[in-house]
Design a protein around this nucleic acid. Sequence first.
RNA 1: GGGCCGUUAGCUCAGCCGGUAGAGCAGUGGAUUUUUAAUCCAUUGGUCGGGCGUUCGAAUCGCCCACGGCCCA
Length: 498
Amino acid sequence: MSDENENDLIAQRRQQLHELRESGNAFSNDFRRDSLAADLVAKYEEKTKEELEGEGVKVAIAGRMMSRRIMGKASFAHIQDMSGKIQLYVRRDDLPEGLYNTGFKKWDIGDIIGATGTVMKTNKGELSIHVDSIKLLTKSLQPLPEKFHGLTDQEMRYRQRYVDLIMNEDTRNTFKIRSQVVEFIRSYLNNENYLEVETPMMHVIPGGATARPFKTHHNSLDMELFLRIAPELYLKRLVVGGFERVFEINRSFRNEGLSPRHNPEFTMLEFYQAYSDYEDLMNLTEDMLRKLTTELFGSNEVTYQDDTYDLGKPFERMTVVESILKYNDAITIEDLQSLEKIKDHAQRLDIPLEDSYGLGKIQIEIFEKTVEAKLLAPTFITQYPTEVSPLARKNDSDPFVTDRFEFFIGGREIANGFSELNDPEDQAERFRKQVEEKEAGDAEAMHFDDDYITALEYGMPPTAGEGIGIDRLVMFLTDSPTIRDVILFPHMRSKASS
RNA sequence: GGGCCGUUAGCUCAGCCGGUAGAGCAGUGGAUUUUUAAUCCAUUGGUCGGGCGUUCGAAUCGCCCACGGCCCA
């Protein structure tokens, strides 16, 4: 922010900073704390005022001053650190001469301070620190939002997440839970003998999903590269290489619109295990999510947007066809097998069709339009058409569908998994179909990945793999209505400079 | 890409059938030695998102643009 844009509030604080510079090091780094706010509260809250006076526990604490109430020669202030808040009781006559009036009273809410003192309890029963020394560690030039309403402007919460994090405990909690979710999954898979790996984010051929990629350019190689849309094909190369259980938790990128459920970069867990099929992964998913909610909340009940979901009960399982029949009284099983009749239904449902769409693709369009949002309770939908599953293994008894599932909760897709297609000739044929669709104008269709076919030709053991959208899972677990609430710095348009 | 809603003090918001801007908190000055949305007295602070138009006169009405939100594609 340039000088001419600054208001009086900032100018006043900058003047204070200037005075601090004149009188010594304004940004000293010589204070060391020995305690965190929440730890002190947890440890001493149960003690009485008298007990604490008898014990005289000395502590050093540091954090951001979030509130202050000056009452003449004594003041109360709250400081906030990474663990929470604690109140300081600051008395003029307990501090070195002059510090109270020329220092503490001139500091601002938002300043970062360090203090030492004795653990005490106020008459009203709040655990506090009776301060005997206090120091300004970092001057804050920007005024914080109002204390009661905090920061509510959504745009500012996303653009200036640091202010949101200072002001809103809910925001801090969301990202703490996000961290716990990732940590849990990592340890769960490690316990299952998985190896965590990192595969390229810059791909020569974007693969592993049907989506439009971001393009970039490597200068010294003078070649076009794509940000990955999925890590899938590299992870399966590792299974070919003998890493029979691998996982990766990291970013993928899709060049699509923004919405409450879509950010251009998002985090996915993908994991692959050899000598397993999609049913094994459904069981694993169910077990992992159940243990995750137990770990996070001590229960399997999750409330999302006023509805409560019980992940303790067995998850429902239904095929794509069964689910369409269940939610569409007007459609019969015979209709679903007839291209003519299914097209009529699609038209009735206002679903735009392309000439290239086959029966399977139209089924999925109908599924997405009429079923997805209704899958509230935890549900696995299985047997996705081969036409829309170019990397999945065909079902042994019905090659029209694949051994694939997607997992839904609260009407949203959270996971996608299948028995992997490890027949190199079938895979090559599927790639050729995708290329035909790309040439027919489908920008999301896949490329032909020669090296991936070569890898399969070395032999990939029978394998099952799955991807879980971490952002959407965290949305569900933190009752967040939009993906922007679970991404620290969500993508925003550039603000026009004045 | 389309529709609807929003953008006013540092923050949270009023004001909008046109007459030139208000409150609370924060800030500043003062009182106050157990407060906690502290209290009491006084007080500073505004390109009303940007532009163009209508009008004697626009925060207010119209059009365009930017950013944000929700819904749809």
